[in-house]
């Protein structure tokens, strides 16, 4: 990697780490969402560095454009109660478990740090070639892999997204406790009426058959 690449990596990595820490540590959820946004943009810079140009764009489009906006919508819907007052109960256990996780993470990071592989040289496109040069990670080459090798999973993703949208609507529609209660009352009343009608009909039928017997 070139010196400029190394500098870009250091900047993006620092931003990604700080923003991730901010997401987890900041009290207000709206600030956490903003930190998540910064984290996502920093990660898309890292994707650019790794020659994943299309994915870097998709990352910004899907995460920054859709997921973070969805988070902010929900925070706005919930209102000031979205920021819970801090709970002091179980602070010792929390700190201990966080410390253990941090130790584990540091161990993992330090053991992975020396991993070395030679980065194959990738030839960049010239201006005249355009999209046809099949550059690694570019739209053309990526789309070819996607539609040649992974067409079925790609189509399944569309089914998954449809199901997710319908499911999200069905779940978010929801009912309050009072609504559930009123529906239950209505159902009980209906069942009572039905039972009464059936009983009356039965009595009538018995009467008719008794008369027919005579």
């Amino acid at each position: 990697m070139t010196t400029a690449g190394s500098v870009l990596f250091l900047i993006c990595a620092a931003f990604a780490l700080l923003a991730a820490l901010g997401t987890v540590l900041v009290h207000s959820p709206i600030r956490a969402a903003m930190c998540l946004l910064a984290h996502i943009v920093a990660l898309s810079g890292l994707f650019l560095l790794l020659h994943a140009h299309l994915l870097a764009m998709l990352q910004v489009l899907v995460y920054a454009g859709a997921v973070v906006v969805l988070f902010i919508f929900v925070i706005m819907l919930i209102g000031p109660q979205a920021a819970e007052p801090p709970v002091l109960r179980g602070m010792v256990v929390k700190t201990g478990s966080a410390a253990i996780m941090l130790l584990f993470t540091a161990m993992l990071a330090f053991s992975l740090m020396p991993a070395h592989r030679d980065a194959p040289e990738l030839i960049p496109c010239t201006a005249t070639e355009g999209a046809e040069c099949q550059q690694f990670g570019g739209v053309s080459a990526f789309a070819q892999s996607l539609f040649m090798d992974d067409l079925v999973p790609f189509e399944l993703i569309s089914v998954l997204l449809t199901v997710a949208v319908v499911g999200a609507m069905a779940v978010a529609r929801g009912r309050t406790v009072e609504e559930t209660e009123s529906i239950r009352r209505k159902r009980t009343a209906e069942a009572d009426t039905l039972a009464a009608t059936t009983a009356r009909e039965k009595a009538l039928a018995a009467e008719v058959s008794a008369h027919g017997g005579h």
């Binding site: 780490l17 993470t105 540091a106």
Partner: peptide
């Protein structure tokens, strides 16, 4: 490291 932060 990011995964660890997320898990914590």
């Amino acid at each position: 490291t990011i995964f660890g932060i997320g898990a914590i």
